[in-house]
Design a protein around this nucleic acid. Structure first.
Lengths: 212, 212
DNA sequence: CTGATTTCATATCGCTCGCTACGAAACGCT
DNA sequence: AGCGTTTCGTAGCGAGCGATATGAAATCAG
């Protein structure tokens, strides 16, 4: 047993050799937790809410995931997925504009899915909160920043390759795309339908220098 | 004494004739409460946080404002101001586009003020939460909808007067402006500076049909 | 089998939450 | 002054919070 697992309480990620096995599907329970946080936010989703949603008792949550904060962070990571995948999609797209368009349309669909809460977990679940949860908000902000960096880098790439004019304001373009995407989350929560969000996404792209 | 004030507990808005007077400035305390909610959100700002911020004991808050929910609603109304004022600004502006530009730039300044929390109270303080607070979220959504209606009506007015082409997608234009404005709130919380937000606002307007 | 290990379900823990009972104090009115 | 009314500060209510102590049960190693 490693030192860190003696000093700190670290939830077990990979199955160990001995001991009674988990009686529930850890991945399925995490999925349910993610949906609960997505619906109601980090601080405003109680352990009681989570036990009900996950179908797992409180002590089982704590043995499997550590504490509420670690559970949320893991749920958030599950929500955003692998950053490398997003990076890859942006690199493989023919142009930065098309990559952003695709991202926004995916967001529009995600925010209005029938089987999931409306809006964006990353934008709403830790948008605000008490001082005790400042580190969780920072973690969410960090994830948003990763996305921003991926967008900016693809735009810069297009500028360097001549697909976009040299005087392109890369950060303005990226931040506008981010603002639209985050704004769509609130509009989705307010009842905007999928087509309305897609129309917004397309309209917001008309300000891009076009090279088609 | 009216019937409603016997049945329900209604906070006194105007000073009554008899009894011990309030020992604190109600407006100043409301302002402090607004800032606290703006900073930390509705459910995630505790009564204890509010007493500290307002400099008023809990019983005094309850006698002056009713309960936490009514205090928040009053703080939110103070934040958004009179809808008639916004309506007036939109009507008096030379064009819908200029009205929206002005609104966005005001938002950019408001979201990055030194004396106030970052971002937008209306967009973040009740963006998510538990089921118990659903009515508060609905109230915030209602305020956002009022703003949306004002924007749409001014755009429609410009279409009717010929300032905008007859095939203008009024709701798309309005929703895009709203998405940008709400998105700026999150970007402001993530540290975007005022000039960045203004640049986003201006960039988002390039998609408008121009009539200058 | 025995022993070591880990999760199980039950029953809480200490704490903070939103909120209020209570009696004293501060006003206007007569 | 005396009365009615309202707010004051103190103290604490019941409820729910996040998290855990406890011992039984379930696995594996030998």
């Amino acid at each position: 047993m490693s030192l860190i697992s003696i000093v700190m309480k670290v939830p077990r990620t990979q199955s160990r050799k001995t001991g009674r096995p988990l009686s529930f599907d850890r991945e399925a329970a995490l999925e349910k937790a993610m949906l609960a946080f997505w619906e109601s936010g980090y601080e405003t989703t109680s352990i009681s809410d989570l036990t009900a949603a996950m179908g797992v008792t409180a002590p089982s949550i704590y043995t499997a995931f550590g504490d509420k904060k670690q559970l949320f962070l893991e749920a958030m990571r599950r929500y955003v997925g692998d950053a490398a995948d997003l990076k890859k999609a942006f690199v493989l797209a023919p142009t930065a504009k098309e990559a952003v368009a695709r991202m926004m349309e995916d967001a529009a669909r995600l925010y209005t899915g029938d089987a999931t809460p409306r809006g964006c977990l990353l934008a709403s679940a830790a948008a605000t909160g008490s001082k005790d949860a400042a580190d969780v908000r920072d973690a969410a902000a960090r994830e948003r920043r990763v996305i921003r960096t991926i967008i900016i880098e693809r735009i810069e790439s297009d500028v360097e390759s001549g697909l976009l004019p040299p005087d392109t304001k890369t950060s303005v373009l990226a931040d506008t795309a981010l603002a639209i995407t985050h704004g769509m989350s609130i509009l989705a929560r307010d009842g905007a339908d999928r087509n309305a969000l897609i129309a917004i996404a397309q309209a917001s792209l008309s300000g891009w220098p076009d090279h088609s």
